[in-house]
Design a protein around this nucleic acid. Structure first.
Length: 201
DNA sequence: CGAGCGATTCGC
DNA sequence: CGAATCGCTCGG
């Protein structure tokens, strides 16, 4: 597997919706504990702190939790959801632009045995097909909030394959954000068409 | 200081 | 369909 790490600029130079789409097909790697795990990103969602009621940093709400989203892009935003699940996001844009991409599903590629152990289940199709699931499979938790992602030495980084398989992108509404009123209708969820590892049809 | 709730998952 | 489960946020 010939992987090059995505440079910092990748996370800074486009709209968060565009970056969400470009992250599809990229490879997410974790080197945590004694094991390396990796998966192909097949589903993402965009969140925009300026104008998006579904974003934790809506109206630039800068709190202890959302603080990291205001930093320079290319780092992680990890938080606890429903008191149980850790969700992994990638911060985008320059400082003081609180935008992020939620990674919702991965196609497991490497370290699959370790993923099975961490998840306590055998079925490869359900190992990483949801945001809480993939964080657990990759060994990610709150300690990895604010981790820089554009360095191959980092515990978590994002890589690009030399030659990517082609695919079509489906754009649709995000999951679990019904409370966000009109913003719940934004087509800011993206996934690879016909992929078997996405979280929900 | 405490009530209310959530970018989810799994099992019944 | 509903429980699990707890940190974050906001109001008093």
């Amino acid at each position: 597997m010939n992987l090059t790490v995505l440079p910092k600029e990748f996370f800074l130079e486009n709209e968060v919706t565009q970056i969400s789409k470009e992250l599809l097909g990229k490879i997410m790697v974790s080197q945590i504990g004694e094991s390396i795990t990796a998966g192909r990103i097949v589903e993402t969602e965009a969140y925009d702190g300026n104008k998006d009621k579904a974003c934790h940093a809506y109206l630039n709400r800068n709190t202890k939790r959302t603080e990291v989203m205001f930093k320079e892009g290319g780092r992680s935003y990890v938080y606890l959801c429903y008191g149980i699940h850790h969700l992994f996001n990638i911060v985008t844009h320059i400082e003081n632009q609180a935008n992020a991409v939620l990674i919702r599903a991965l196609e497991p590629l490497k370290g699959i045995e370790e993923m099975k152990i961490r998840r306590g289940m055998e079925n490869i199709k359900t190992l990483c097909n949801g945001p809480g699931k993939l964080a657990m499979a990759m060994g990610i938790h709150k300690q990895y909030n604010d981790t820089v992602l554009y360095n191959k030495e980092s515990p978590i980084w994002i890589g690009k394959l030399e030659s990517e398989p082609k695919f079509e992108i489906v754009e649709t509404t995000r999951i679990g954000v019904d409370y966000a009123e009109e913003d719940a209708a934004l087509p800011w969820r993206y996934y690879i068409k016909d992929n078997l590892f996405i979280s929900k049809k």
